[in-house]
Design a protein around this nucleic acid. Structure first.
Lengths: 195, 195
DNA sequence: GCTTTAACCAAACGGCCGTTTGTTTTTCTA
DNA sequence: TAGAAAAACAAACGGCCGTTTGGTTAAAGC
């Protein structure tokens, strides 16, 4: 009963397993089509046991979402910081973004696949998380040299839309995400100022 | 008002009401989050009565999907045929596409909002319907003059992705769909060969 | 007028849903 | 090694799900 802080909590491994399974299933089938029983079965657990780790299904989605944003942001930031020229910085960001979105992370894919409409009480926080991530692209586009007629707001929406929509037509076996990102950028720039 | 054929079955009015309600609810809440009871309540009907008009929920979605593709294709085709120059033909298609997608038709919005993954036995037909519609844009892009470095395949995916993704950020009260389409195209062309 | 039939009602079917409750097992510390 | 805390089990709760079945109503056709 002593108030010692030396005692760390147990490793809590299954919590991570739960998050992994939830991310995978949410990505594959969507939020509503995935049941708590599905998630429990995927980690070899009884449905009720999930509620020791998460208070609700909604909160489970929120945690996956947060982790997804964290992972894709981390990866994109690292890619951007390795470049100097604005054009190459944006290209690096697009490549990293697309790799996470198409190949790497179930978590990141949930962020864009699961539409935060009527998914529960935390839908506003989901949207806020997504917006917070996209601020990076706002800054990258602001650095860029563009013709004066081009509205940077719509330039960003054009680029992000094209990248995110790739999730709907991408199939493994075709061009890898890196090539796709570069081809989309080339189509966008019209082949003018290419590296 | 003698436009009614004197013979034939009864007018079967509620079937259209059902489709309208289903389209509206599928668009707003998604397929899985919309129950047959929700749809029945929206038209003032008991849940079981829907099965007189449609054999299953899956078939109901398929019918909405088909009607959505039909409506958006009809509208886009009309807009394209009113133009001669390839660039203006594509622009007209984009405007019509976006207007249907953002403002006009619940049916058309279902086609792009409801991801046809694990929605039931007819998911392949849903994808086929969507592909069949997008063939139009393939042709429009083929007519277009483009720099030789630009891959027309990715040019089309870039454009359609940007347009379709607008569904996730569009809010009524901002720029109308027509302006959005033109701004996106301007960002895509880089302000070069504008009308 | 009688029959047919389109259209819907009324009521239930089994099943899965998210979640709760009480108990048991495991694990780590004191 | 005793005991507390963490983690999972076992079993149910009420409720909603898509769908089925059989009966009722009212318009249409002969």
């Amino acid at each position: 009963m002593s108030n010692t802080a030396t005692t760390g909590p147990r490793q809590d491994n299954r919590r991570l397993q739960l998050l992994d399974a939830a991310a995978r299933l949410f990505r594959a089938h969507g939020y509503h089509a995935t049941s708590m029983r599905d998630i429990a079965r995927a980690v070899g657990m009884l449905p009720g046991s999930i509620y020791y780790h998460f208070p609700s299904k909604d909160e489970l989605l929120l945690t996956v979402y947060e982790e997804g944003v964290r992972r894709i942001a981390e990866r994109v930031d690292a890619a951007v910081q390795a470049q100097r020229q604005p054009q190459q910085r944006l290209q690096a960001a697009c490549i990293a973004h697309l790799e996470m979105l198409l190949d790497q992370s179930d978590y990141a894919q949930v962020v864009l696949r699961v539409v935060p409409d009527n998914t529960g009480p935390s839908q506003r926080r989901l949207i806020a998380l997504r917006d917070q991530y996209e601020v990076r692209f706002k800054q990258l586009v602001a650095e860029l040299e563009l013709p004066p007629e081009v509205d940077r707001h719509y330039f960003r929406l054009l680029l992000l839309g094209a990248l995110n929509w790739a999730q709907t037509w991408y199939r493994p076996g075709g061009d890898p995400p890196r090539i796709i990102a570069m081809e989309l950028l080339r189509a966008l720039y019209g082949g003018e100022n290419q590296t």
